[in-house]
Amino acid sequence: MKALEAVRAVRGWHPSQQALRLVVLLGPLVALLAAAPAGHGPAPWIVGVVLLLSVLWAARPESGGGTLALLLVLFWWTRVPDDALHPAVLVAAVAVVLSHLAAVVSAAAPPRTPVDPAVLRLWMLRGAAVLLAAPVVWVLARALRDQAAPDLLWPAALLAALLVVVALGLVLERREEAP
């Protein structure tokens, strides 16, 4: 009975919301399954857990289900042998970003509300912009992986990355405040 009610509720959603939430649902699964070509296919149990969390996320885009689903995806990618810099990780990155942005857009309004095409265009542009970071990091990581790294390289890189983020934030903030 509850399943029937759920199906009825989903059918009451606006088609644009249904499409967005389908992207939310499929994103973590695609990101997880992309680990298979990289050499470590996901175990059935993790596929099941991620699927459940994704369903929760698609139904309630503001819930913590999405965070848990994405953290599980990250966990599985740590188990991929070597350094997991297979091109499939880029597919996983696209899936993660798409599901995250689809959840952000769909959470802005109740499910019966149609998604404004202008809102969708704006977020597609934003998605394309932030996705550029993935191939840049991937190329850098592949270029540096054969070189012997000093012990402090990664912590230094982390510190540098954080500093860049903070500096970028401050620059953008000042630009916002400028008349």
């Binding site: 990250l74 990618w77 810099l85 996705l131 990091v137 990581a141």
Partner: peptide
């Protein structure tokens, strides 16, 4: 030491 995670999460 998993650079793949950085690829996955840098856009976020």
């Amino acid at each position: 030491g998993e650079p793949a995670l950085l690829v996955l999460t840098a856009p976020l």
